[in-house]
Structures are given as C-alpha cells and as structure tokens.
Design a protein around this nucleic acid. Structure first.
Lengths: 344, 344
DNA sequence: GGCGCCTCCTACATCGTTGTAGGAGCGAGC
DNA sequence: GCTCGCTCCTACAACGATGTAGGAGGCGCC
C-alpha cells in the first residue's frame, strides 16, 4: 500500500504538501496540485484512516447500540442511521446489546477505547435507576427512546403517547368503541408499552369512554406476531365484543389481523386494525396495515446530527458547554386499508 | 484520557514495561506487574486502539457488506456475524450496499482505507461478468452466496438447490403433487431464485412428475409477503389446482399462507406451505411455518473464521499461499405445523 | 575469576498522518 | 533600497502504541 511519502517522492514535493493538497489547503500552486494528484492517481494512493485518526484524535466513526438487528424495527432504524451517518460523513459501528445489561454496559465502555467518537444508545435493559451510569459518560452520547431519561444527556425520542392517542382516535372517529390494545407488559412501567397505553387511555377518556380491561392483550413473551394473534384470540374467545384493535407494534397488529381474518372476520369492516412503527412489512400486508409512523427517519437524522454537533464541540477551542437537547420526532398516522369507517 | 506514559510515570517504570504487562509478556516481575496494574486501575487507563492499529498494521475490524438490514434475513445474518466476530475477537463494520452497484463497489474500496482488515461481501448486484473486480482485490475477502463465483476467492454459501429439493420432497412425501413455487424472477439466472427452482425441478423429475408452469408464481417486484399473497391468488384465481406451496423465501410463503387462510383454505390440510430461510417470524406465524434453515449460523461462523484465517496468514512471515475454500453450509428442513400429511 | 545465560527492564525508532514554525521568493509601498 | 506582506513550500515534532536492541544484575558452571 502506498503512503504519502511515496506520493511525495514521485511528485517531488514534501509529505506535508501532499497532505495539503488532499485536504484542500488553499496555498498550493495549481501546477503542484496537479503533479501531486497525478502521483496519487498513479500509485492508487488512499489515505490511511488509522494514522489520520491517531494524529487528529477523532476517528470519524460513531457507535450505535441497539438490542438486535433481527428485530425489523431496529434493522430499519439501523439502515436509516447508517444513511444519516453517510450524509454527515461519519461511519457507524453497530454494537448489538442483545437485550442484556452486560451488552449495554459494554457498548458504553467502547467509548473509552478510542475507536468511536460518540455513541447513539438505545437502552432496553438499563432503567431509570441506572441513570448515573450514563450521566458519568464523558464522551459524546445521545440516547434514543424514553426508557432512560436524564436532563444532562441529549435525547431523541418518538411521540409514544401522542402516536397511540392519534391511532386510537382514528379508530374512534371511524365509529369503533370497543378497541382492544395488544402488547401490554406486566413488568414495564416506563417504556414504550406504558406510554402507548397512556395515549390509548387519554383518547378514550377524552370521549368519555371507559377503559375496559377485558380489551387488554398481554404479550410478556415479546412483541411478536404470534403473541398478537394469541392475544386477540383470547379476547374473542372470552366473548368480549371488539371492533377495533391497536397493536403496540406492527408485528402484534399483523398477527392480530391474521387471526381475525382466519376466523372469518373482515378487516376493516368488522374489526379495524392499527399498528405502530410503520415497518416495511406493514405496507405489504393484506390488507395493508394502517400504522403510526413514529418518524424513524427524523429520529435517525436528528440523532446523528446532535451527536456530530457534540463531537464537533469537543474539537473547538471555546469549549462553551452545549445544552442538552430533547428532540421528539413528529409522528404521523399512515392510513392504509386495515382501517375504514364502520359499516352501519 | 490517560495514556501509557501516564501509567508508566505513576508506576515508576518505562512505557514499554506497561505495554509488556498489558500484553502478558512473560518477563515481568510479579511486583512490577502489580504496580503497573494498580496504576492502570487508578487512572482508569484503556489502551488506545487507534494507536495500536497504526503500529501493528491491523485494526481488528472486518467489514460486512450486505444490501440492507431492514430485510429480516440480512438483519438476522448480521446479528449472527456480529456474534461470530465477537467470538473471534474482531469487530464488524456493517456497510449497507442498498442493492446498488456503487454501494457494492464502495464496500470493496473501503478495504483500501485501512480501517478494516478484511471484508465479508454478499453481492446482490455485481454479477458473474464482474468477477474480475473481486479477483483484483488484494486484501482478505470472503464472498457470501452464489451470486458471483470465482475459484480464486473464498466462498461460503448455502445449499440452495438441495434445500429447495428437500422442501419439495417433503411436500411430495406428504402426498402433494400440485406444488406452486412462488418468487421466480424473470431476469435472474444465477442467483438464489434460479438455484431454488432447479431444486424444485429436480425433486419433481425424480418422481417422474411434470413441471407445470401454471404453478409458477412470479415476484419481480421483490420477495415480500404481499407478492407471495398476490402470486398464490393469481394461481388460484386461474383455477389451477394446488395442494402445496413452496415459497422461495419465508416472506413469500407467509404471504401465501395468509391468502390461503383468508380464502378459507386450511393450512396444512388443504394446502401445505413451506418457506426458505428460517427467519424468526416464521416461528411465530399461525400455523408456524415449515421452512428450510439454510444454516445461517454456520455460514456466519465459517465466513468469519475463513476471513480471520486469511487475515492471520498475511501476518505470518511464511506467506505460504492459502488455497481458496468453498464452504457450503449444512441445510435442514425445519418441520412445523404449516405442513402435514394430506388428509385422504 | 571469567564466561555465558537468563531475567527484567529501558531507550529509541517506527507506524502514516497532520499541526507548527519558519524560510524563500516575489511584488508593492515608502 | 529596504521593509512588509503574501504565497508556497519544507522540516520537524507529535499522536500513542509496539518492535528491536541492548544493558544491568544475578546465577551457575568450568
């Protein structure tokens, strides 16, 4: 592999001049610039990022800690963040935490090894009582989601409450009054499940409707399709009347929709179904699933931007403290064919 | 951030001694070792991987070029490869190629920037006529899949033909004779689609059965659920008899299964359904989907191992040439409830 | 006692790049 | 003619680690 010294020798200039050419330093004569570029071309020279990183103190890489990529939401989020990283000129190193505490702590420690300039962290296991751990982090950090909150750290989240509320209101507007909510977790009181339930409650109460716990579908084993199907089956088997379904994520909603259709119920005529997350699969379901787009692309773009801003701040002399930001992405209900007015 | 020099000063030894302690160099007195470790502890010192990489010439990172993580198969493959990387002590930098030629070429060029020691490349767009491009790569490279083949490069693939054949034979063994095959691509003649069709053909012909093209379901718009549903709907609407379905991937099979059930056909009694890939979703479908496990974990483990072997070979003096390997992972039909004997 | 070997440590160079300091050449202004 | 300032370039040090060479001290052996 050619080095700058090789290029310099071939072009008959100093190493630094080569560096200057490649970094668009203005005071280089045009003829020199061309000579250097020709040498670069001729040797197929590529700058060595490791050496550059050592010298400059930054690697141009950021970390992304998420539970697992096999989960479509995280896989798609990762794609969006990688794309946002490309736009901002940084590479993204993905560190799956596997829904484990050790995995999440390991991701935070990665910051000390000097390989990444900052970290986007989507905690799934660390909970509010661990807030000191993230507050102790001295490198640029942006938290994704509302699992773990600190006023000292940047956050980018989705509008869980508003999203669930809007989805529920869509069903109410279409004349549905018996709306099942699928995916509740017995143990969780801070995460997406609890917040989305809050939005559901708010929508019902705003219309003066009672929350009927017989319409609660639990999914402590995970937000999979199978659990969506099972939960709706239990509700129907119990003889509970139901004309609408809110899945706390798309997989649950899709599983429920399948179960309904297999039982001969028509979607949306008999039961309307709404999901949450707007994963790609939902667009291709039959019928296509109405869902809440939580603003995944905005989340990705904003998170990367905030992180890059914080990284840049470390390299400016001023060192004026950057105020922590809380950004809540815009959500939007994507209406497709799994919802529609209740036939009279 | 503390450096080795800080540790050395605190421990009262030379920088190199600190390095020796951390790298388990044997000739260090026990008392010295302890003194150094105490200093390390006290300063919270972590070795700087950038500096180590520059000096040693290897970064301990490998690249993984796949089309996109949002596609569940690739998301899960990425998880498996990240896990395999962890076992081998390397980190994995994921580079989504976005099903574009530029993306795939960019991933290959990444090898010249010195950030990764080698690349796992799953081509989706580069085709056999581009074989010279990958043969020209001078750094460690392992190709995944059969899209692009060269005898000069390591390959790790799945048994596409055998897998499709075994899946088809399972259906035949259960008394199915009218087996639809979903997901064929008009343009493709070298990739997974063509190979799996070959396995399907072989299974039928071995039993003396004709291949009926009216049972062909096309999916040029992509291997999504929606296309699986559409394809099976077209076959049924055309009045073609059908008691079995082979989806060329799980999404197609799941979409087809859904369509069948919505039409009141029972799975597996009326129509048995088999998929390919064994993605997580299939386990949670209703009924759970019988599918071909192409050996994803074995592929991940083997690919990482081959790549690491090739990387290590570059750093051994001998430089004896490593013979290119072609590894075909073991496949296995995972029988679940979407298949079963045909009721008489 | 002299020699060689083993243990334990240090000094220095090195990886490939970029920041700093400064020098040479040239035109403009007094 | 001298200074000043601008342009263009070079030499050297530095980032933080590891490889090499070698030195000091202790021990055993002839």
């Amino acid at each position: 592999m050619a080095t700058m010294a090789d290029v310099a020798r071939l072009a008959g200039v100093s190493v630094k001049t080569v560096s200057n050419v490649l970094n668009d330093y203005p005071y280089v004569r045009e003829t020199t610039r061309e000579r250097v570029m020709r040498a670069v071309e001729q040797l197929g020279y590529r700058v060595n990022v490791t050496a550059r990183s050592l010298r400059s103190g930054r690697t141009g890489m950021i970390g992304l800690a998420v539970p697992e990529l096999g989960q479509p939401y995280f896989g798609e989020l990762a794609d969006d963040i990688l794309a946002a990283g490309r736009r901002h000129g940084v590479q993204v190193l993905i560190e799956p935490t596997g829904y484990t505490r050790e995995g999440e702590l390991a991701a935070l420690e990665e910051l000390d090894r000097g390989l990444i300039d900052g970290l986007l962290f989507s905690p799934a296991v660390l909970a509010p009582e661990d807030v000191e751990i993230v507050e102790a982090v001295r490198q640029p950090l942006v938290l994704l989601g509302e699992q773990l909150f600190s006023s000292k750290v940047d956050h980018v989240t989705m509008r869980n409450v508003e999203g669930a509320r809007a989805a529920t209101e869509l069903l109410l507007d279409q004349g549905r009054t018996r709306i099942a909510i699928l995916g509740l977790l017995h143990r969780e009181h801070v995460g997406a499940s609890a917040l989305r339930l809050e939005g559901y409650r708010a929508a019902l109460e705003a219309r003066g409707l009672e929350v009927d716990e017989r319409l609660f579908g639990w999914a402590d084993e995970g937000w999979h399709r199978g659990n969506g199907a099972r939960a709706v089956a239990q509700i129907l088997d119990a003889g509970v009347e139901c004309d609408g379904v809110l899945g706390l994520n798309d997989a649950l909603a899709l599983g429920a929709m399948h179960e309904l259709q297999v039982r001969g119920l028509r979607v949306p005529q008999d039961v309307a179904v709404v999901g949450f997350d707007d994963v790609e699969d939902s667009r291709f379901a039959t019928p296509p699933l109405t869902t809440v787009d939580p603003g995944r692309r905005e989340i990705a773009e904003t998170a990367v931007e905030l992180l890059c801003r914080r990284i840049d701040a470390r390299f400016r002399a001023g060192a004026e403290p950057v105020e922590p930001v809380l950004h809540r992405a815009a959500m939007r209900v994507v209406e497709r064919e799994s919802t529609g007015p209740r036939p009279s």
